[in-house]
Amino acid sequence: MSESQKTPPRLLVIKLSSLGDLFHALPAATNLREALGAATLDWVTQPEYIELVKCFQGVDRVIGFPRRNFFRQAPAFARELRERTYDYIVDFQGLLKSALVARLAKGRRRIGPSYAREGSRWLYTSTAGAADKNRHAVEEALDAIGHLGLQRRDISFPVRFPAQPRLEPQPRIALAPCSRWITKNWPVENFVEVGRLLQEELNASLYLIGSPADRPTCDHINRQLPHPAVNACGQTTLVGLGSLLQEMDLLITVDSGPMHMAAALDKPVVAVFGSTDPVRTGPYGSKHRVIVVPNLACRPCRARSCARNNLACLHQLSAQQVFTAAAEIAGQI
């Protein structure tokens, strides 16, 4: 009897972080639920992402993994985790801590990803295929479908955020200028120049987004623009950020969590990539534009610091290149 012919099973997905990685796992989790005809889909994630994962359609229960103060909160976490017995426990994180969560849960099969590390493989009953890092992380997560002998469905990102009033005229374009890596961050003055061109040439309504730590950068950009943008940087929750991006016509960004959120919402993205590899972590889908320095031997180095101390992969990209890509997309709106 095939997997899909059995009594509807209970499915537990483990993806603890980070923002972009949660969206990478969503198509695979959706595929699994549909292909298995799962009765329930529960998801374990870190507390800061609980409300976000509740916006994923088809997730019945979200369980918070207490990353901080673990030992104090572990008993309550274990009780909640073990309330149900699962037919399939699928870990999309592939780290020792996530594998321990899989082992603690009550279930018959514990499936780890092909990219499992930190000795986590020893805690699974099986892993989903051989490692292949030369593909997108979304495709990588989908290994679990073939591993179970299931037929892969169309890739979708079923996420829904609360509606937000549209206060500014189109085209509405968001700028996300910051990431946590210096080797991903395009010079801020280039964002200023792109913003200026968008306002003067396209009459665009601009929005600045990011975390509270990014606020000084966004404030600086806003002060330099011909007209003030809507500066939402540090002013929204993750769910609120999703609501805002739902209303955008375009996002211009570095390699960042908001980039993956916008792509999941089917919003066009112009993404500037430095040290990281868009083949693996670029915005998923065909409607996006990724801007890189061509034929630069040192990229993608995937490093948090620049061995050459010149960040050529970022500094050689001009504001005009990014604006041209944005204008082409805006012309299709």
Rank of each mutant, 00 (worst) to 15 (best):
V159A: 13
V230S: 14
K97E: 09
L150S: 11
L19V: 09
D277Y: 01
L104E: 02
N231E: 09
A137Q: 12
L104A: 15
N310P: 00
G37S: 14
F273I: 03
A131S: 06
A319Q: 03
L241P: 04
S179I: 04
Q316H: 14
T45A: 10
G129E: 07
V279E: 10
L225R: 08
F70D: 01
L244I: 08
G37L: 13
I145K: 14
V230A: 15
I252S: 00
F56Q: 03
P165A: 15
V192F: 07
T217A: 12
M259G: 13
T40L: 11
I333C: 10
A38C: 05
P75A: 11
H136C: 12
V101F: 04
S275K: 01
P258T: 03
R289C: 04
P113T: 04
K54T: 10
R72G: 13
D249L: 04
L22G: 00
V322Y: 04
E118G: 10
S120R: 11
A264F: 05
G149F: 14
T324R: 09
R196E: 14
H315D: 06
L251C: 09
S4W: 12
S256N: 09
G129A: 07
V239R: 00
L81K: 09
F191G: 02
P8F: 05
A176D: 06
M261K: 00
G94Y: 10
A271K: 08
V269W: 12
N231G: 06
E118H: 13
Y207K: 03
H220P: 00
T45M: 01
A312R: 11
A264N: 04
S18L: 04
V279R: 15
E193V: 02
C298R: 08
W186Y: 03
C233I: 06
N309A: 13
T30Q: 11
I89C: 04
L11S: 03
A297F: 07
A163F: 03
L52D: 01
T45N: 08
K6N: 12
A74P: 05
K133I: 01
V270P: 01
L311I: 05
L142Q: 15
I155H: 05
E83F: 02
L19Y: 06
I50G: 00
L206F: 06
R72T: 14
G129N: 07
